[in-house]
């Protein structure tokens, strides 16, 4: 089958996961990859569970179905774990990154992951975003954590792309806050 890296993002509407998937896709594209970044909307209301996906490849991406078997799963809101099947379809070597103050061992239990092949990482992305951006927006700390624990994209490439693409959209203060959030996400993510 085609050789893709596949990512699934779980969050609630307004937590910025669609933007996170977009930023990841754009950064990978700038690094020379073929990408997809797409949301899966359900009911369009604040707080509703939302998914977003990435595919990253060295070849043009032809597949247009939803991501079924993501190796990388990012969970922006741990209260979704009991509501949405966040581990569904994941392979034995899956990587989970969860926004929580809890330890990876605690999250492993909550996620119900048995096999030793899968890895669980945690990052208190809500706290970081409150301190850097001034509101709970866990997407950019999660992206920072992703650069640390996966080889999908480097932290520098992520930040450079973000600055370039969003300089016109956001105030300088917002850009700086998000860059700080990405840096802290990368340095504060915890593994088992």
């Amino acid at each position: 089958m085609e050789n893709y890296l596949e990512v699934r993002w779980h969050g609630r509407a307004q937590q910025g996961i669609v933007t996170a998937a977009k930023m990841l896709g754009e950064a990978c594209l700038m690094a020379g990859k073929f990408v997809q970044a797409f949301p899966e909307f359900g009911p369009e209301r604040m707080g509703a569970p939302v998914r977003a996906y990435n595919r990253v490849s060295d070849e043009p991406v032809r597949l247009h179905s939803q991501v079924q078997n993501p190796r990388y799963v990012l969970i922006a809101d741990p209260t979704l774990i009991s509501v949405v099947p966040v581990t569904e379809g994941t392979p034995d070597n899956a990587v989970f990154i969860v926004n929580t103050a809890k330890t990876p061992a605690e999250m492993r239990t909550e996620l119900g992951i048995k096999g030793g092949g899968a890895k669980v990482y945690t990052i208190d992305a809500s706290k970081i975003s409150l301190e850097t951006i001034g509101r709970a927006m866990p997407n950019t700390p999660l992206l920072g954590a992703l650069t640390k624990v996966t080889g999908i994209i480097g932290l520098t490439a992520l930040i450079e792309n973000f600055k370039e693409n969003y300089a016109k959209k956001f105030a300088q203060k917002v850009i700086e806050g998000n860059v700080a959030a990405m840096n802290r996400g990368a340095s504060e993510v915890k593994g088992e």
Binding site: V35, Q36, F38, P39, F41
Partner: peptide, 12 residues
């Protein structure tokens, strides 16, 4: 073009 699948997906 396909709604969401193409309209909302970022591609190269």
């Amino acid at each position: 073009l396909d709604g969401f699948i193409t309209s909302h997906a970022i591609e190269n």
